[in-house]
C-alpha cells in the first residue's frame, strides 16, 4: 500500500519565477519524512508537487520527474486527478466542508469518487475515524456539522477524510501550526501510528516536532530572497539534528538564523 517516492532534478515554477531548484531525493515507504527550513524556502511548494497540487495555482508548472514506485507522476499519460487519489493531503488550516456533517465529510472523497453502497460507506467512515483517533469523540454525533468541532478535532477529521480514500502517501503541510499543544500531541501520536501503513511527508516549522515524529529530515534553504529554494541536505533525523554535514543546516537547527 505505501509507496516510495523518487524525485529527480525537479524545478518548480510560478510563471517565470523559479521557486524551487534542482531537488533530488528519495522518500522511503512506511516512514515519516520531515521538511524543515525558513519561511519562503519552497518546502510547501515542493510538497505540493508530490501530488500535482502545485499546478492548481495559475502559472504553476514543474520540470523534472517524481516517481511513485515505477510511475512518473508527470508523465503526459498520467491523470492528475488519479495522482491525488493515490497521494492524499492534509492542509495547514483545518478545512472541513462546511455544508457537510462529520459523516459526510469523511465520506466525501468516497462518494465523489462514486462509492454509493451505504453499508460500505459506513464501514469506511468508521475505520477512517478510528484511524484518525477521532471515533470515540464523534461517534454519537456523526450527523452534526464538521465545522462545529474544535480546531484539533477538525484537523483529525481532515486526516480521516484524507485516509478514507486509502491513499499510498499522505502529505501534511504544517498540520499542527494552527493547533494548541494538546491537539498537536494528538496529531503527532496519530502520525506515529499512521506510518505503519502510509508513506508520510510532513512540512513543519517546528524543529522539535520534526525531531519527534520523523525518521528522515530534509532541510531546505534559499541563498537569498528572490532566489529559488533548494534542498540543502537530507539524512536520518537523528543525524541532521546531532551532526549535520552542512554548515547552513547546523546554523538553522541551532537557531543561529531563520
Amino acid at each position: 500500500m505505501a509507496k516510495r517516492i523518487d524525485v529527480k532534478d525537479l524545478n518548480v515554477y510560478y510563471g517565470a519565477f523559479k521557486a524551487v531548484e534542482d531537488v533530488t531525493m528519495t522518500v522511503e515507504p512506511r516512514s515519516v519524512t520531515a521538511f524543515i527550513g525558513p519561511s519562503g524556502c519552497g518546502k510547501s511548494t515542493f510538497l505540493r508537487t508530490l501530488n500535482r497540487m502545485h499546478e492548481v495555482v495559475p502559472g504553476g508548472r514543474v520540470e523534472g520527474h517524481v516517481m511513485l514506485d515505477d510511475q512518473d507522476l508527470y508523465s503526459p499519460k498520467v491523470d492528475p486527478v488519479a495522482v491525488r487519489r493515490t497521494v492524499g493531503m492534509v492542509f495547514q488550516r483545518p478545512n472541513p466542508f462546511p455544508t457537510m456533517s462529520i459523516f459526510d465529510n469523511v465520506a466525501a472523497g468516497l462518494r465523489l469518487n462514486g462509492l454509493r453502497d451505504k453499508k460500505r460507506l459506513a464501514e469506511r467512515v468508521e475505520t477512517s475515524l478510528r484511524g484518525a483517533h477521532l471515533w470515540n469523540e464523534v461517534k454519537d454525533r456523526l450527523d452534526k456539522p464538521g465545522a462545529g468541532l474544535s480546531g484539533g478535532q477538525q484537523q483529525r477529521l481532515c486526516i480521516a477524510r484524507a485516509i478514507a480514500v486509502r491513499p499510498s502517501v499522505l502529505l501534511m503541510d504544517e498540520p499542527c501550526s494552527a493547533l494548541d499543544p494538546i491537539s498537536t500531541q494528538a496529531i503527532e501520536d496519530l502520525i506515529g501510528t499512521l506510518k505503519s501503513d502510509y508513506t508520510i511527508v510532513i512540512v513543519t516549522h517546528n524543529m522539535q516536532q520534526a525531531a519527534r515524529v520523523s525518521d528522515r529530515t530534509a532541510f531546505f534553504n534559499l541563498a537569498a530572497t528572490g532566489r529559488p529554494g533548494r534542498l540543502v541536505e537530507m539524512d536520518d533525523t537523528q543525524k541532521i539534528f546531532s551532526n549535520p554535514t552542512q554548515r547552513a543546516t547546523e546554523d538553522y537547527i541551532s537557531g543561529r538564523f531563520g
Binding site: 492548481v56 486527478v81 491525488r84 478545512n95 462546511p98 472523497g109 465523489l112 481532515c158 484524507a162 480514500v165
Partner: peptide
C-alpha cells in the same frame, strides 16, 4: 474559500465535481 477547493482536489475529485458538489452547495 480556496482551501475547500484544494481539499476536494486533494481527495482526487475532478474540478467539475468539486464545483458542482462543494463550491455551489457552499455558496447556495
Amino acid at each position: 474559500p480556496n482551501e475547500l477547493r484544494e481539499a476536494s482536489y486533494a481527495l482526487g475529485v475532478p474540478k467539475w465535481k468539486t464545483i458542482a458538489r462543494i463550491v455551489i452547495p457552499t455558496a447556495f
